[in-house]
Amino acid sequence: MVVDELKCKGLDITKLVGLATDGARVMTGRNGGLVTLLQEHSPTIIGVHCAAHRTALATRRQLS
């Protein structure tokens, strides 16, 4: 579905080199995550955890 939508928008998946995500498993999971799905079409894609999301997680107050 995602691949079809990208193609519908005229985007060439083979030219995609990276994808920044919020780190959720649905995005980065090895078994069906978006990065893995896109790597099936373009194996050179690199998935990274967005710096802003990582900072937000690191600075979040812990509830006691």
Rank of each mutant, 00 (worst) to 15 (best):
G29W: 00
T44Q: 14
T55M: 10
G23P: 02
A58R: 02
L34H: 03
G47F: 06
M1K: 12
R30F: 15
L63A: 14
G18V: 03
G10W: 06
K9E: 11
K15R: 10
L16N: 05
I13E: 07
V3K: 02
A52M: 05
I45H: 04
A52D: 06
Q39T: 02
Q39A: 01
L11V: 12
H53L: 10
K7L: 06
V35K: 06
D12V: 12
K7P: 04
V2A: 11
L37V: 15
A56L: 14
A24M: 03
D22F: 02
T21G: 00
D4Y: 11
P43Q: 12
C8P: 09
A58K: 04
G47M: 01
H49C: 06
T55L: 15
A24K: 09
D4V: 09
V35N: 03
R61C: 15
L11R: 10
V48N: 05
D22K: 02
G18Q: 05
G33R: 00
P43R: 10
L38H: 04
V35L: 06
L34G: 01
R25K: 09
A52I: 13
C8Y: 13
N31Y: 12
R60W: 06
D12Q: 11
G33I: 00
T28R: 00
L63V: 14
L63Q: 13
T55H: 02
V26L: 08
K15S: 13
G33L: 00
R30E: 13
V17N: 09
A24Y: 00
H49D: 03
G33A: 00
R30G: 15
D4P: 05
T59N: 05
C50G: 07
I46P: 01
T59I: 01
L63P: 07
I46S: 04
K9L: 10
R30V: 06
L37H: 11
T14H: 10
H41K: 15
L34M: 08
G32F: 04
L19E: 03
T55P: 05
T14A: 15
G47N: 02
C50H: 02
S64N: 15
K9H: 10
G29Q: 08
H41I: 06
V17A: 04
K9D: 10
R61Y: 12
L37T: 13
G33F: 04
N31V: 07
K15P: 09
T36W: 04
G23W: 03
L6F: 02
H49A: 00
V3C: 10
